[in-house]
């Protein structure tokens, strides 16, 4: 009896086929099966946000999604945020505003922030803080992250 399930999904615009065990999370499949290690594991129980990906237009913590649930889904990870060799305005804003220190939470913050700015191109400081309360950062105290998202919003509106 086969122990693995065949899953067909779209990741960062490419069709991907992979085999996974029913017990494997989407996070584990992304990292250990598909080899996309930009999505990070901080807690594996949905509380730190380091594994945030965009799934069918919603941000999810990929540790709480099963790999088999990715069947037919459209997933965007941190690896799909830049346009080829051009960084996304959020990525530029994070760099120029020094919004990362160790950087382990950064992929989750950028994926989350991108979803925010797609829904709300001009968020207030409170709206940014409310939205990003899903994502823990222990290095920055969030100040420079909030400023980077404000800066990115400005860049995207001016573009």
């Amino acid at each position: 009896m086969p122990t693995k399930t065949h899953v067909t999904t779209t990741i960062n615009g490419e069709q991907i086929d992979f085999l996974c065990e029913p017990r494997q999370s989407l996070l584990e499949c992304l990292r250990d099966v598909i080899g996309l290690t930009g999505t990070k594991e901080g807690c594996n129980d949905g509380n730190c946000g380091a594994c945030t990906v965009n799934m069918d237009g919603r941000i999810v913590t990929s540790c709480l999604v099963l790999g088999v649930e990715a069947e037919g889904a459209n997933i965007e990870t941190i690896e799909g945020v830049a346009d080829g060799s051009n960084l996304h305005p959020l990525q530029l804003a994070f760099l120029e505003n020094a919004a990362l220190q160790c950087g382990i939470c950064t992929p989750g913050f950028i994926v989350s922030s991108k979803a925010l700015l797609e829904q709300n191109p001009n968020p207030t400081e409170h709206e940014i803080r409310f939205w990003l309360a899903n994502n823990l950062c222990r290095c920055t105290g969030y100040d420079k992250i909030v400023r980077a998202v404000q800066d990115a919003a400005k860049r995207m509106q001016e573009a």
Binding site: L36, V81, L87, Q91, F94, L95, E96, A98, L100
Partner: peptide, 11 residues
Amino acid sequence: VRHDGADKVTG
């Protein structure tokens, strides 16, 4: 901008 920055914002 830090030297390791691009690697850290692209995963």
